[in-house]
Design a protein around this nucleic acid. Structure first.
Length: 295
DNA sequence: GTCATTTGACCCAA
DNA sequence: TTGGGTCAAATGAC
């Protein structure tokens, strides 16, 4: 089974000393991360070795995912406690990337141009879950969609000519768990830090933990839920499908489905071109997903 | 003052 | 004509 060997990069030792987390929380996070790193190292060794061993790489991969999932869950819980201990200021995620506390804003008196009363303010952080900086440049109401679609561009669009954009849209019909569809279009050409290879699903606190991959039909992205992946630097047809948008820009969709469908520890269900993956760990608060270029 | 978000307007493909 | 993507002026936060 093909496995992204670059998944182990960008895993710098975490420094939580300045984050204000309790010592017990730091201890938990450290333990989980160490466990994950150890499993990752074993798996890497396993993959690099042609010799047969009694260890199942899939089990190791699952263990790695679980370790990082739990670490991130602890981090998120602790961060939530620190930012709004009484949760009185918590609000739903508009674009799925809200980070700052919000303030009630009254938009009356603006010539009736703004038709809704905002009780939250969503501000992009400098970097998002994929470690790139994004700036929102538009939002549209989509036909037959409950929630609007937000459009983001790379913050280096003008200074470095980066053409990367992404679209974020909250999915409907999942009232019990808030879930966002994130579509990445064009790869980053800007000179920034490398994307984090594995990250958590951008969602509200107790989001459903899924990975999904879009299908392409007739060369165009057709349907998907959760995240779509594009990568321009991999010419392996088993991993990447090249698609062309109507605007002429070229996208590359990582076809992880063909790789993960045989991944025994993953549970899959199929819903009209939508593939849902879960780790099978019902207690997991989040699920790792491959994010960024897989080369 | 600078930077990010909001949102109506505009453009274009179907 | 309509719907989706982008632009840019207005506005707010820091």
């Amino acid at each position: 089974m093909w496995f992204p060997d670059s998944i182990f990069i960008n895993m710098e030792p975490a420094d939580f000393s300045h984050a204000g987390f309790p010592a017990e929380t730091r201890k938990k996070i450290t333990a989980k991360l160490l466990s994950g790193r150890e499993s990752a190292a074993r798996l890497q060794s396993l993959l690099q070795s042609a010799a047969a061993t009694d260890q199942d790489p899939r089990a190791l991969a699952t263990k790695i995912l679980t370790s990082f999932n739990e670490s991130i869950s602890i981090l998120e819980s602790a961060a939530a406690e620190l930012s709004c201990p009484d949760h009185s200021l918590c609000s739903d995620l508009d674009s799925g990337e809200s980070r700052r506390s919000t303030e009630v804003k009254n938009h009356l008196g603006r010539a009736n141009k703004r038709r809704r009363l905002m009780n939250t303010r969503v501000v992009m952080t400098a970097t998002t879950e994929d470690n790139y900086g994004w700036r929102k440049y538009g939002q549209k109401v989509i036909l037959n969609a409950t929630y609007p679609r937000s459009y983001f561009r790379c913050t280096h669009k003008y200074d470095q000519g980066c053409r990367a954009t992404k679209q974020v849209q909250r999915m409907e019909g999942m009232d019990s768990e808030i879930m966002y569809k994130i579509t990445y279009i064009c790869d980053h050409t800007c000179n920034t830090t490398s994307p984090i290879i594995a990250s958590t699903v951008a969602s509200a606190s107790d989001s459903y933990n899924l990975i999904s991959f879009s299908n392409s039909h007739n060369g165009r992205l057709t349907e998907g839920t959760g995240h779509s992946f594009f990568c321009p630097n991999d010419d392996d047809p088993m991993k990447v499908r090249e698609t062309t948008t109507t605007s002429g820009s070229t996208n590359h969709e990582v076809d992880l489905w063909s790789e993960l469908k045989d991944f025994g520890s993953l549970q899959t269900t199929t819903m009209t071109n939508q593939y849902y993956f879960s780790t099978g760990d019902d207690d997991a608060d989040s699920l790792m997903f491959w994010n960024g270029c897989l080369q």
